[in-house]
Design a protein around this nucleic acid. Structure first.
Lengths: 247, 247
DNA sequence: CGAGGTCTTGAAGACGATCAACAAACGTGG
DNA sequence: CCACGTTTGTTGATCGTCTTCAAGACCTCG
C-alpha cells in the first residue's frame, strides 16, 4: 500500500543525525531525494524477512518495529526495537542477506532508500556516509547494552532499563510529552525483548507499578519517578552517544 | 612495549575482508601503510578503557581480547570476543567516546590505525571504507546472535553455540588445525560471556565432555563430534556473513 | 617448592518458567 | 450500539534451572 509523501519522510532521521553532528543543507537534500516510496505496514507484518536480499533499506517514518530471530523450537528473541527515524535494515546494504526479520509492532509508515543511492553517497558524500555508518554503530551500542541486561541484570531492572532507554530515544524525535509516551508493545512482545516469560513480565511490571515507578494503560506509559527508575535500572545514557560533535 | 613489525600486521585483517569481498592491491597497500605501531598487551590489561577517546583504532594481530562492561555491583558482562584480524574499537572512530572497555584475555599483539587515516580513506577509497563498515556490521550481527543465546537458549546450548562460532571464526584466519584450536579463556571468562555463574559453566562443560562433544585441556579445545555439537547448539553460520560478493 | 589462580564438588535456595484458568479489553461485524 | 470472538492481561500453584556459598583439589609458573 502506498501513501502520499506529504510530510518530510526524513524529518526524524535528520533529527537523530543532528543530535550527534551537524548535517549540512546539501546532505539533508541528498537524503531527501534518496528516501522515497512511503508505504504502510500493518502491525504484525514483516518489513523485511529473514533470508531476504533487499535492494533498498527501510526507514521508519512512524510506528514501532522490532528485529527478531526465531529459534527452531519456536521461541522468539527480539534484538532491537526501532522507532521513527531508524533505518531498520541499513546493514543489509553491505550484509546483503538478512539473517533475521524485522516486523511492525504497531502500524508503521515506512520509506526506503535504494542501495545504489547509498553506494553513490559513499563516493560523493563521505561525511554523510560516516553519519549513516554512525547510526549502525549506535545500533551496535544498544545491542551491547541489551547483552549486559540479558546477561547480568535482574528481570525488574532489565524492564526498568528498557523503559529508560525507550523514553530517552523517543525524546530525541519528539515522542515524549509531559504525561509520558506511547509504547504500543504487548507484554508478550516485552517478554521476547527481555528474554523472560510473559507471565513473569506481568509480575515484574506490577512490581514497578506498585513501587510507583510506572503506569501503563493501553499504549500509554508514564514514569512518575524518573530518578528512582534510573537508579533501579542503573541506567546511564552514555551508550546512546547523544553528544553533538564532528564525526 | 614495542615490537618489530616483522610479519605483515594486516595479514589476518585482509584474510577476513577477502572472505567477504575482494580487496584490490591498492586497498591492501592503503591498509598496510595505515596500520602501524605494533605493541604487546599483557593478559588482563586493557587495550582500551571505558571512557577513553582514542585517536586511533586497535587491530588484533595475535591473541584474544574481549569487550566488557562492568555493572555498579561489580559483575561483568563480556559482549564480544575478538580474534586476530579484528578491529576491536573501529567504532571509536565515529562513536568517539568508549562506553565499554576492551581487555586482553591472552597476551595480545596489537597494531593501530590513526582515525585521520580512516577519515582520509572515507574520502579517497569508498569501497575500502565500505569493507571496514562491513566489519562493524558483522560485529553487530554477532551481538544479535549472542542476544538470542542469552535470551532464549539453555546454558548448555549457549556454550555449544559459542564453541561452534569460535571454531568457524578462528578457521577464517587459520587458527584451526586437525586437532582443534587454542582458546585461552578461563571458565570465569566464559561465565561472563554466557551470562552464567562460573560454577554452572563448569557443570555444563562437564556435560559436554560427558557427551563426547568437547575436550578442553588448558587452552586446547577439540570438538570430536561437530555435527552433534552443531545440532545441540542449533548453530547456523549465516550470521557470520562468510559469502564473497561485491559490497 | 610454594602460592595464587583455576577447577571441581556438594548443598541449599532464589528466580523465573510452565501450566492452567479466568478476566478484561479490543475490534469487528451485525 | 451491542454481541461476540479473539487477543491481551492477571493470578495461583508447582517445578526446574541456575545461583550462591563454601570447601577442597589441582595446576602452573615463578
Amino acid at each position: 500500500m502506498r501513501v502520499d509523501a506529504t510530510a518530510a519522510l526524513t524529518a526524524s532521521l535528520i533529527q537523530r543525525l543532528e543530535a550527534r553532528d551537524s548535517v549540512s543543507a546539501e546532505e539533508a537534500a541528498v537524503l531527501e531525494v534518496s528516501v522515497q516510496d512511503a508505504r504502510i505496514v500493518q502491525a504484525g507484518d514483516d518489513l523485511v524477512s529473514d533470508g531476504d536480499r533487499p535492494s533498498n533499506s527501510s526507514l521508519i517514518v512512524s510506528g514501532v518495529a522490532a528485529r527478531y530471530s526465531l529459534l527452531p523450537g519456536g521461541s522468539r528473541q527480539i534484538t532491537a526495537l526501532h522507532l521513527p527515524g531508524d533505518f531498520v535494515d541499513l546493514h543489509s546494504f553491505l550484509l546483503k542477506t538478512m539473517d533475521h526479520g524485522v516486523l511492525a509492532i504497531s502500524r508503521c509508515r515506512v520509506a526506503t532508500m535504494p542501495h545504489e543511492r547509498l553506494t553513490e553517497i559513499s563516493r560523493t558524500h563521505p561525511h554523510l556516509m560516516r553519519l549513516l555508518w554512525l547510526m549502525t554503530l549506535i545500533d551496535g551500542s544498544l545491542h551491547r547494552e541489551w547483552l549486559v541486561g540479558l546477561g547480568r541484570r535482574s528481570a525488574i531492572s532489565r524492564l526498568a532499563h528498557l523503559l529508560c532507554e525507550t523514553r530517552v530515544r523517543l525524546d530525541c524525535v519528539g515522542g515524549v510529552d509531559a504525561d509520558g509516551f506511547d509504547l504500543p508493545v504487548t507484554q508478550a512482545d516485552l517478554s521476547d525483548i527481555l528474554g523472560l516469560s510473559s507471565v513473569h513480565v506481568n509480575r515484574v511490571l506490577q512490581e514497578l507499578r506498585g513501587a510507583g515507578l510506572v503506569t501503563w494503560r493501553g499504549a500509554r506509559v508514564t514514569l512518575p519517578d524518573w530518578p528512582r527508575l534510573v537508579a533501579l535500572a542503573e541506567f546511564d545514557d552514555r551508550y546512546l552517544h547523544l553528544a553533538r560533535e564532528p564525526r
